[in-house]
Design a protein around this nucleic acid. Structure first.
Lengths: 235, 235
DNA sequence: CCATCGAATTGAGCAACCCTCATAATGTAT
DNA sequence: ATACATTATGAGGGTTGCTCAATTCGATGG
């Protein structure tokens, strides 16, 4: 017996979307509780109020269903990341710090879900900058590009390297943090953020030379260029 | 029928050790080919020349067997890491660079096996600085500690943070590198190593000062913002 | 050399689980 | 009301990790 009669004033498309959302929600719960292996398709079906076979009309297998859960979550997060960047108005260093802080907080609060994403990477061989995560990562690219355009960051800094540094460091840092008790965790996060900013700025602001005095002159000149541009457009 | 008759001149203990090694070797092959999920216990048993039930006399389940494979590999690597450090005689910065280069090379050449280690972390919830990896990670701790003792590194640098930075960055960098073709890969590794050294030294050699002191550029930019506001309101 | 006994090994079978597919229910158009 | 296409069902197939009663091995002592 097919379960639910169609509610009134509901198009066919809406009903299917609603059912799909129920499936994804049930899957999210189950995967968070038990991981890719621990979750049971039968349980997901039951929680979604659907027969087991129905799951396979929407997703071709278990991994694919988990991919959907993870993709949806990255979409939500991407919006948050954009917001964190926009909050720091047009100041690249502040934007970078905002994004970094946002990402670390995220890793810690949403760890169980993000762990699923990492599991997909290692179990199913999904590329990590793949589909779901890609839009999220692009937020960083934008911050760095704008920083370069403004002359605050050196032009020859390798974006890919910075990306690995930021996301790699923070993923490990989050795992370390989660092993600590509540009190020490905050301290560890603060240390991580401050060290990571120091580290990234060292690369972003004088990548050419080895440990020397910060190249104030170049940055000053860049600022002057902008000043002159404003002045001439005002004249 | 129990398979192999005991070879001459072989004690019971030796025979068991040999059999265990055969099992681990077979398991390593199978896991590298198919991952935790793709590998089949039946296939491992066959390759090891042993009945399926015998596997469970040595390891209590599939995950446990994979743990043994991974642990053995980390042991080998730890020796290599020590060697890489000792090669740079007593110069902390050079030691750090040696270890960093060694680890990145390792990640790239041994990726399939190390991927198994990461999979265990995400599928079985093993702590990443757990058992097998711990001895390896300690090599870095030694380098940093000696650097501090010699006064080359500032004393208040947080070792945990540096650890996350080094291993996190390199893991992500290795994955990025593996997506590139042979030619670009070398370039990417060079960039990564140089950037990471710059970054870590920035933290290790002057962590005392506030991360980014309000300097001339910041004040200039603040002035520019005010100017821009004036200019736009005048236009 | 034989008998004995604990340790080691075997592999058929069990239980769990993902996924398929023949069948049924439902919504829609004529 | 009838016919058709779409969507849903859930019992069953096939695979796999793991168990355990039965069997074999090998050291020891008489």
């Amino acid at each position: 017996m097919v379960q639910s009669l169609q509610k009134p004033n509901q198009t066919k498309r809406e009903r299917l979307a609603e059912r799909e959302e129920a499936i994804v929600a049930a899957a999210r719960e189950a995967f968070v509780e038990g991981g890719l292996r621990g979750a049971r398709m039968a349980q997901i079906a039951e929680r979604a109020g659907v027969a087991e076979g129905t799951l396979y009309l929407y997703y071709k297998n278990k991994s694919d269903l988990m991919r959907a859960v993870v993709a949806q979550h990255w979409d939500d997060l991407t919006r948050g990341a954009h917001q964190a960047v926009e909050q720091a108005n047009d100041e690249p260093v502040a934007q970078l710090e905002g994004l970094t802080r946002f990402h670390l907080d995220l890793l810690i609060t949403d760890w169980p879900l993000l762990e699923l994403s990492f599991a997909l990477t290692y179990m199913e061989g999904d590329d990590p900058p793949s589909s779901y995560k890609r839009d999220y990562v692009i937020v960083l690219d934008g911050v760095l590009r704008r920083g370069k355009d403004k002359g605050v960051f050196v032009a020859d800094a390798d974006i890919r390297v910075l990306r690995d540094m930021l996301f790699g460091t923070l993923e490990y840092a989050a795992r370390s943090a989660l092993l600590l008790d509540e009190r020490k965790r905050q301290e560890h996060c603060d240390h991580t953020l401050s060290a990571l900013m120091t580290a990234m700025l060292a690369v972003l602001q004088r990548s050419g030379e080895p440990a020397q005095a910060p190249d104030v002159v170049d940055r000053l000149e860049a600022a002057i260029d902008r000043l002159e541009a404003v002045a001439s457009s005002a004249g």
